[in-house]
Design a protein around this nucleic acid. Structure first.
Length: 535
DNA sequence: CGCTTTTGACCCGCGC
DNA sequence: GCGCGGGTCAAAAGCG
């Protein structure tokens, strides 16, 4: 197994555990049985005794965990030496605190031994001197841990800021290399011409078809460079900078579907955007569920029989925000109908719920890299290998590039199981909880963000390392890289924590909060009415 | 009633 | 120009 992914998951667990035990609003609760059916990490948990046992009675909390990358269920028992009243059994932390402390400059105290002393909210009688002193100690410990949590939060913010700056530099360098280094690359030229042609052609066609959008001023192509940078820096937990700007400024927003239809893309956005939308990321997953659960809300808008495949292809568009250009196609593999192929296209133009961040970020990052200077020749073998290794470095067979297709496509194959990073659906009837591959996607993001590149290749990273006087790569270094690589790391951690705290079954945490919307996720709707898609 | 899904029709690009 | 296939639209139907 790749240690980076494990580190990421371990960090997540560590943070989650810490929050679990220190936040009064997140007390350990017995999990519903149906929560076993999905989600991240924990597959079963139980409270051995009632949640409100009589005082002084020994209480035991057992939490089982699922190792993110080995699918191996573990059960860690934490016996409390300091508090005789409580046995806290919490998930193990996958990384050592000394590993975490190196680059963050913080020493995590929320290890097992520390956690074991946390008060579970039920204190011993006041007349017990020993209990009093224990209580004091526990409270002090609690305060200390809260302080450390705050420190970590601040550190995380700082890392995020630094990461953004680094990404800026990286993308700028990439752009420079693309524009000055190999401007005449055939693939590049071809792609640009194609994009341009399509842009022009589509614009004309769309004007004919949707005359109301024909008068919209098209953005100047001279702004492409800065736009490129913004595109590559798009964050899936934030509204993309340029997109947000255009959505806000664009007077096409009032045209209903105009704002969330292709015509808008073709007529009001640059050729680069059109090309961006053409990039596709295909995810192959073995599941019996009609769709994979990626945290977004989708609305089906069409279904077609595709040539060469007896299974129909369904078309969905993102409905989390009007104007979101993201589409996805869902189709069973003709050769193996247990494999579901989900193809994503476009970049979300709205904030995403934490549960949607991993998949959205991964697909967007793959698409960005596919279309960025990281693939100078577009369809060259080197670039294919680079991206394949970049997307899923643990196995070159897991990520493939299809440049011969009408659209450049990255395929993430999650159906092959030899790697511990991959998993078989443990829940045959459940939609695939993509948050389960949180660590994997986060890892992919890290790679895609370029921060796993060797220092020689990335001066910015080198400078960053030097500035921080960081030792040669280690597990801690890797953890740091994972942390710093993703500006959405906070959201990703939040997603993981939410998944754990809210019960693993609730991988739609963010959506559930959207009580204002009556829209259901695809999977939810499918449960309501059995589709005819894959009969 | 509002939202989603279904499904036939339509549009477009491409190859011949 | 024509046919084919992919993609999308939009009215109708279904559902809670």
């Amino acid at each position: 197994m790749d240690g980076r992914g494990g580190a990421a998951a371990g960090l997540t667990l560590a943070t989650a555990s810490s929050l679990l035990l220190t936040s009064p609003s997140h007390q350990i609760q017995p999990m519903d049985s149906d929560r076993h059916s999905s989600g991240i990490g924990f597959t079963d948990a139980s409270v051995a005794e009632a949640s409100t046992p009589p005082p002084r009675q020994k209480r035991t909390v057992v939490i089982s965990e699922m190792d993110f990358f080995s699918n191996e269920k573990k059960k860690m028992t934490m016996t409390s030496g300091a508090s005789p009243d409580v046995d806290l059994k919490v998930p193990s932390l996958c990384i050592k605190k000394e590993d975490l402390s190196v680059n963050t400059g913080l020493h995590l105290a929320t290890t097992r031994s520390d956690l074991s002393t946390v008060d579970d909210g039920m204190s011993p009688p006041e007349d017990d001197k020993e209990g009093k002193s224990e209580l004091t100690a526990v409270q002090a410990e609690l305060a200390r841990m809260n302080q450390e949590n705050n420190k970590l939060r601040l550190m995380l913010n700082q890392l995020t800021t630094n990461c953004n700056a680094l990404q800026m530099q990286l993308v700028a360098l990439t752009q420079q290399r693309r524009t000055s280094g190999n401007p005449e690359a055939p693939g590049n030229k071809k792609m640009e011409e194609k994009g341009h042609d399509e842009h022009e052609g589509d614009a004309v066609a769309r004007r004919q078809r949707y005359p109301e959008v024909g008068d919209i001023d098209e953005p100047s192509h001279s702004s492409t460079t800065s736009r490129d940078r913004c595109l590559s820096l798009r964050s899936h937990t934030e509204v993309p900078l340029d997109h947000e700007k255009h959505v806000g400024e664009d007077d096409t927003e009032e045209h209903g579907w105009n704002s969330n239809k292709t015509p808008r893309l073709a007529s009001s956005k640059s050729a680069e955007d059109a090309t961006m939308r053409k990039a596709r990321v295909s995810v192959r997953a073995r599941t019996e569920a009609p769709t994979i659960t990626d945290g977004c809300q989708w609305r089906k808008y069409g279904q077609k029989m595709a040539k060469g495949n007896p299974c129909p292809r369904a078309y969905y568009r993102c409905t989390m925000a009007t104007g979101c250009p993201v589409r996805k196609q869902v189709q069973r593999c003709a050769d193996d109908r247990s494999i579901l192929i989900t193809t994503y296209e476009g970049t979300h133009s709205h904030p995403l719920p934490p549960a949607a961040v991993p998949m959205a970020s991964t697909t967007s990052a793959a698409a960005s890299m596919l279309l960025s200077g990281s693939m100078p020749s577009g369809d060259g073998p080197m670039s294919s290998n680079l991206l394949a290794r970049t997307v899923l470095p643990c196995s070159s067979s897991m990520a493939t590039i299809s440049a011969s297709a009408p659209f450049p496509t990255v395929t993430l194959d999650l159906t092959q199981s030899p790697s511990p990073l991959q998993f078989q659906l443990p829940f045959p009837s459940a939609a695939l909880p993509l948050s389960q591959i949180f660590g994997q996607t986060l890892q992919s993001q890290s790679r895609l963000s370029g921060l796993q590149m060797s220092p020689e290749m990335d001066p910015a990273q080198l400078a960053h390392r030097k500035a921080q006087s960081v030792a040669p790569p280690s597990l801690a270094d890797t953890v740091s890289a994972v942390m710093t690589a993703d500006p959405n790391f906070t959201a990703a951690v939040a997603a993981a924590i939410s998944s754990i705290i809210g019960g693993a079954g609730n991988h739609r945490t963010g959506n559930d909060d959207n009580s204002h919307s009556s829209a259901n996720t695809t999977s939810c709707s499918k449960q309501r009415r059995e589709p005819d898609l894959f009969q």
